[in-house]
Design a protein around this nucleic acid. Sequence first.
DNA 1: TTCGTTTTCTTGATCAATTCCAGTTAGTGG
DNA 2: CCACTAACTGGAATTGATCAAGAAAACGAA
Lengths: 152, 152
Amino acid sequence: MDDAATLRGAGLRVTAARLAILDAVRTGNHLDAEHIAHAVRGRVGHVSTQAVYDGLHALTDTGLVRRIEPAGSPARYETRVGDNHHHLVCRLCKGVTDIDCVAGAAPCLEPSQSHGYLIDEAEVVFWGVCPDCRSGTGEAPNASEPSAVPRG
Amino acid sequence: MDDAATLRGAGLRVTAARLAILDAVRTGNHLDAEHIAHAVRGRVGHVSTQAVYDGLHALTDTGLVRRIEPAGSPARYETRVGDNHHHLVCRLCKGVTDIDCVAGAAPCLEPSQSHGYLIDEAEVVFWGVCPDCRSGTGEAPNASEPSAVPRG
DNA sequence: TTCGTTTTCTTGATCAATTCCAGTTAGTGG
DNA sequence: CCACTAACTGGAATTGATCAAGAAAACGAA
């Protein structure tokens, strides 16, 4: 199924902007809205920032892309959906890496108490320092001083 | 140990604003900066917003309070630190409830692959609908239409 | 105590990410 | 090919948070 059919199947109109957004999110590695906008413009010329946000909103609402929001970074998007995988986030460069969920379906964990909540998802984020930042190779925003690495 | 001694022990000066912030965070239930500012003002009169942010920053930096940032809500603060507990977040009203971590120390989970990261924390957020919102009692911002409850 | 240093607080501007709005453009089903 | 409506544009506005410079206050030392 190509992207045009995917969009139509989700009840969305097929536009150059949305095809480019979908491709940018799939090709990129957990890009944020700004980087997606940049990639989209490099592909189809001028596209307003609002169109990018609108497109991302439509795609997330229909479940074609997933939006993740690690603390301290803008929202990021990925096309890997439905497999309930988790994420590894670097405290320094904020880079995101996927991690398979051993349990499969959501919610993959059972809380010790549910407090009456109707739980549908367990979101797991592993925080640490990525290989590049550990070796000083990474483009860390503040790699000069590792400072305190807080614990949970 | 009272709050003044706690602040001093963390290397911070003792001010009325900070004592009030610490008390507001402890008394409140995962309040955001705005609500903390409101509580502080009700206790010690005028305090600038900046002083509240600065105080919260100082308290989080020294580990006296923990800052959590659930997707879609402003940062929230709690005084329960060091026990690596987790959170239950309501998709509708954004309310937060603590959940004990059965494993104890951080990181409480081992990822299936570490990808070379030096991992120090596993943050677990359970998403669902709280009892109040389920029964329609809650002050949900958009409780009229439950809309789609996305899955992980 | 009083002083001097350093932190903290104040006011006010600024920022980044995102959303709202009104009008125009362009997919799509008929 | 038309009409209807979703999608896009340009621009302003919102929210949550930070930065900057000077004034005030905490606290160790004299």
